[in-house]
């Protein structure tokens, strides 16, 4: 299985933030969700992949090639959706399309027209009069109209209402069902990913916490609840972000099988959602 994205020890330093030795890979044909709270470094990673900002260290390979040396070739195979698509607000969608289409040798006009129809987008209405959802749909239509092999989306659902978000994800899921496309999807709305992602990469404070398949995550991660008397130096090793209260503790584990062995039947185990994993991991990060 070939990797579409391979990132090794990626570093980016800002005055107030550092992306620390980020490494992960996305195999061809899969969807990866890049999750983390606001300011964790998701957009920085995406900008580095797109060569919009310069890295301070590490390496990025897209389609097996160095992302700066083969920039034009690589970008012709990427469909990119920004968190806030920056289109000229005084132009209409047709004009925007006329500006962008000539840059892609494999631009497919019928695909664009069918997506515009499907998304119910007006071609002649100026972008300023579009709602945020419409702008996002327009960005997705443009990103999917040149047969991109890799779709990179930075927070495409943030700021959208739940109905619209669901609709957008359905459309995306439907569109990508029968194609061998890979998707890197960054979001802090983790419920979006539980439906469509194959791999999840969690980033906190510029550091990768894990990058694993979704199934593997849900097999190993769980919410553990029990009495405070069960907590000791030995058992705490298996727990992350322990919250204690009058009636007991609640925490996350990434080693469910060991936790079951160590604690026995005295604990309650609940399924951990991605949001739980993000929350408790962040808690550990903040209060360890």
């Amino acid at each position: 299985m070939e990797n579409v994205i391979e990132i090794q020890n990626l570093r980016k330093n800002y005055d107030d933030f550092t992306l620390k030795d980020v490494s992960f890979s996305l195999p061809e044909g899969y969807v990866m969700g890049l999750i983390g709270p606001n300011g964790a470094g998701k957009t920085t990673i995406i900008k580095l992949i797109m060569n919009l900002i310069m890295k301070n260290g590490g390496g990025i390979k897209i389609f097996g090639k160095n992302h700066t040396e083969h920039e034009v070739e690589i970008k012709s195979r990427i469909g990119f959706v920004y968190d806030t698509p920056n289109y000229y607000e005084h132009l209409n969608l047709k004009q925007i399309k006329n500006i962008i289409a000539p840059f892609y040798s494999n631009w497919d006009e019928p695909v664009f027209v069918s997506l515009v129809d499907k998304f119910d987008l007006p071609l002649k209405k100026i972008i300023r009069k579009f709602s945020r959802g419409m702008v996002m749909k327009a960005a997705i239509a443009i990103a999917l109209s040149h047969h991109a092999d890799l779709i990179i989306m930075d927070e495409p659902t943030s700021g959208l209402d739940p109905v619209f978000r669901r609709e957008l994800l359905d459309l995306l899921y439907e569109l990508l069902q029968n194609e061998k496309k890979s998707i890197l999807f960054s979001t802090h709305i983790t419920s979006d990913l539980e439906r469509i992602a194959d791999y999840i990469t969690l980033i906190l404070d510029g550091k990768i916490i894990f990058s694993r398949s979704k199934d593997e995550i849900f097999e190993n991660y769980a919410i553990v609840k029990g009495g405070n008397e069960l907590l000791n130096e030995e058992t705490k090793k298996y727990l992350k972000g322990i919250r204690t209260g009058e009636f007991g503790f609640e925490s996350l584990t990434d080693n469910l099988s060991e936790v079951k062995k160590k604690f026995g039947p005295d604990i309650v185990i609940d399924r951990a959602s991605l949001e739980d994993i993000m929350y408790y991991s962040n808690l550990r990060n903040n209060h360890a």
């Binding site: 990427i78 920004y82 892609y104």
Partner: peptide, 18 residues
């Protein structure tokens, strides 16, 4: 000026163009 107002640098830098 118009490109800056629309933050269009990002669009063009993400297109297949040097």
């Amino acid at each position: 000026g118009v490109d800056t107002a629309s933050n269009a640098d990002m669009i063009y830098a993400s297109l297949p163009v040097k």
